[in-house]
Design a protein around this nucleic acid. Sequence first.
DNA 1: TTGTATGCGTTATCAG
DNA 2: CTGATAACGCATACAA
Lengths: 356, 356
Amino acid sequence: MTSRARRVRPPAGRPVTMNDVAAAAGVAQSTVSRILNDNALSVRVSPATRERVLAIADELGYRPHPIARALRGAPTMLIGAIVRDITDWFFAATIEALSSRARAYGYSVVLAHASAAADEALRLTAVLEARHCDAILVLGDFRGEGRLAEDLRNLRVPVIGLWQGSEERGRPFPIIGVDNRTGIRAAAAHLVELGHERIAYIGADRLGDMEERQAAFLGYLDETGIELRQDHVQLVPNTIDGARFALSALLERAPGPTAIVAASDVLALGLNRAAFDRGLRVPDDLSIVGFDDIPQTAASVPGLTTVRMPIPEMVEAGLKIGVGGDRWSGDGRAPRVVFQPSLVVRQSTAAPSSRD
Amino acid sequence: MTSRARRVRPPAGRPVTMNDVAAAAGVAQSTVSRILNDNALSVRVSPATRERVLAIADELGYRPHPIARALRGAPTMLIGAIVRDITDWFFAATIEALSSRARAYGYSVVLAHASAAADEALRLTAVLEARHCDAILVLGDFRGEGRLAEDLRNLRVPVIGLWQGSEERGRPFPIIGVDNRTGIRAAAAHLVELGHERIAYIGADRLGDMEERQAAFLGYLDETGIELRQDHVQLVPNTIDGARFALSALLERAPGPTAIVAASDVLALGLNRAAFDRGLRVPDDLSIVGFDDIPQTAASVPGLTTVRMPIPEMVEAGLKIGVGGDRWSGDGRAPRVVFQPSLVVRQSTAAPSSRD
DNA sequence: TTGTATGCGTTATCAG
DNA sequence: CTGATAACGCATACAA
């Protein structure tokens, strides 16, 4: 250890910059920069200075300043997730999958939920912070939030929509969705095959995917000639309590349904709990089939028959388009990817009991 | 509209900067800057130029560049959340609460989960991106991730730990926790009052809070003179499947427990489902009490007796210390806030059935 | 009242 | 091989 080996720590209380390292090493700051990112550089530095600078950088505890890098145009390695309602278990599961998958790409996730009291200022905020991000995933349907759509349109970063419903209104960004029609028809067909004849539907209003599921349900019953009472279609908030409310409405006029198709697992699980609270046994007195296959179904008593949504695969597809190999150039038609759901039969569905 | 009214849009394909606005308005960039943040400025600009510049900024669609601002030292309005396991429903609920509360402060949340395959590089990443943030909340116990702790220590931003367990090892940052002892004793006392005598415990290993709960449970049984069989304490992963495994183990040697204290709701819900799959009725054959009162309990059949964790309040306290009015100066002892949990009795607990 | 100049921490392009 | 120097977009002390 030479007499010069002990170097002056720059005044603690301030992060160590390249300048500090350069000063301590007696070289130019640009030299430090070159050494510290030697990856794709054409110029080479002498092993001697490299060693020295690296050692000093380490000793001083130098850490690159991501914001300064970002200002220079480097990617921020941040993915923005604009989510309609983070309290919705479905979107929670989505964020979980997104966060996990994003990490595989080296990205982290910035949450911006626009839900509920989404007044103008907040929508703007969500968009402003978006400029921190390398890509934005819009999770869920944001119809009615006209301003958000417009803000997104003016953004410089790629935007990918997931679960936006399938309407083709010339959206300027890629969309990833699911074949709701196939999913719902599988669910309804399953109930019909079990022998149910009074099948109800509960869903939520104003949400693209939900509306498609409702239409698919009505279409299927129509085709198969099964009668559907008007009051056996209930539209409620997509919550546990919403489902409770829906069940009350469905049972108001006898005979009630022997089976219910719920447009989401949240509603299905809420239905299941509400049925229990009313003393109805599932599936003996009431069959329930959900949609999404969220992780919460693993704790459901009884196990929930549902339509599996390939959440991880869909998120992965979104990442590929946003920051991965499938990046969309922005030319021509925005790509649309549609995934196929599949029925998962568990214990919440059975043949209608004979006493009906 | 004068002949000069149509101004040249700066070459689309690049965000509009203050310079663009300045050029279009024929003023200096600094003037634009002054006008655009007129808040606490001592200097005044002429109403004429102000009008003009504002109009042009609007016309050009100027948006401030948050990264440039951040480089100048402005807060990023980002809160980092380092979470041990985002698939854990408890932490999912925490993130939900955090995201909601943070918005009230004008902040968004950056997720960085360090879980599972947390190799060195990733830990560093988590810390690097941290410099984007104005504060960091560490959710859950990270013992064993020694490097993370060290990295956090060197950080320039305030760090607040939540649910780290209560050990007082001279941590250099504020901690917010819950009184595990009181919570577990309330749960156990409830079962004892119902008449249970064979009470088991299941929890997870290596987690600060979990260990405290276990110790509290053992201590309580000891005090009240209730016998505890060695194999009636099961340590498993904090998952639905972990609980399933634990139940198998608990029932291996007759007589099995008539009641189980689970160290988390995830375990309790898993237990409930596993009991159902084995044909055990809850609470008739088996009483279950959980810990946390996560939102998923609202869908549980039957309703889960549990110990309520004041998640929103705790998150709020963390935000107050990190970015709110209770900011910690860094001097003296780091503050510790301990919240009190409370028992919520629902349907998963009852007196042991007489056939036992 | 407004313009000029400087710096925040990097990276990149020049010269030397 | 290395050292100046100029951006990146913005805020601000200082000069006019």
